Amino acid sequence: MSESYPWQGLGFDEARRVDKRGQHDFFWAVVENDNVALALALPDGAERILPLPKIKSLDIRYRKLGSRDALLVALRDPEQVDLFASLCKDIVSAGEQGETPSDALDRAVRRTLRWHHLLRGGSSERLSVEEQRGLLGELQVLQLLCAEIGAEAAIEAWRGPEDGAKDFELHGMCMEVKARRGAARPQVQISSADQLADVTGADVFLLVYDVDAAIKPEGMTLSDHVQVVEDIFQSTTLAAYGTWERLLAAAGFDWAHDYSDRRWTIGRRMTFLVEEGFPRISSPVPMGVINVKYSVSLDACSPFIATDDLLLSEIQKTQSYNSK
Rank of each mutant, 00 (worst) to 15 (best):
L40F: 04
F26P: 15
P78T: 11
F12V: 02
D25E: 12
P51A: 12
L40R: 05
R61H: 12
E96M: 12
V92A: 07
E96P: 10
N33W: 03
R17K: 13
A74R: 03
L75N: 14
R17V: 13
V81T: 03
D44E: 05
K89M: 11
A41P: 12
T100P: 08
V18A: 10
A41S: 15
R63M: 10
R76A: 13
R110K: 15
D103A: 10
R16H: 12
D19W: 08
L52W: 11
P6A: 02
V30T: 14
L38M: 07
L105P: 15
N35I: 02
D82E: 15
R21C: 13
T112V: 12
A94V: 08
R110C: 10
A104L: 00
R16S: 07
V31E: 13
I91W: 02
E96V: 07
L42H: 05
G95P: 05
P6G: 02
R16C: 11
Y62R: 00
A39Y: 07
A41N: 07
D82Q: 11
R111Q: 15
T112I: 10
A70E: 11
I49N: 15
D34W: 05
Q23R: 14
K64S: 15
N35L: 00
L50N: 13
A29L: 06
W28I: 06
D44H: 02
T112C: 11
R114C: 13
A108E: 02
I91S: 09
L50W: 05
D69V: 04
A74Y: 01
V31G: 10
I60N: 05
D13V: 00
I55N: 03
N35P: 04
L10Y: 00
E47L: 10
P53H: 04
L40K: 00
P78N: 09
A46G: 08
D59I: 04
E3K: 06
A37Y: 06
D77R: 01
K64H: 14
H24D: 09
R110D: 14
S86Q: 12
V18I: 08
R63P: 09
W7E: 13
A94R: 05
W28E: 05
S102P: 00
I91V: 15
P78H: 05
L113P: 14
E47V: 11
D25C: 07
S86W: 07
S57G: 03
D25W: 00
L65F: 09
D90N: 11
S102R: 00
G66C: 00
D34F: 00
S67N: 13
H24K: 01
A70I: 06
Q80G: 09
R68M: 09
G45P: 00
I49C: 10
Y62G: 03
K20D: 15
P51R: 03
S86I: 00
W28R: 02
R76I: 14
E3A: 14
A29Q: 07
A70T: 01
P78R: 01
A108D: 11
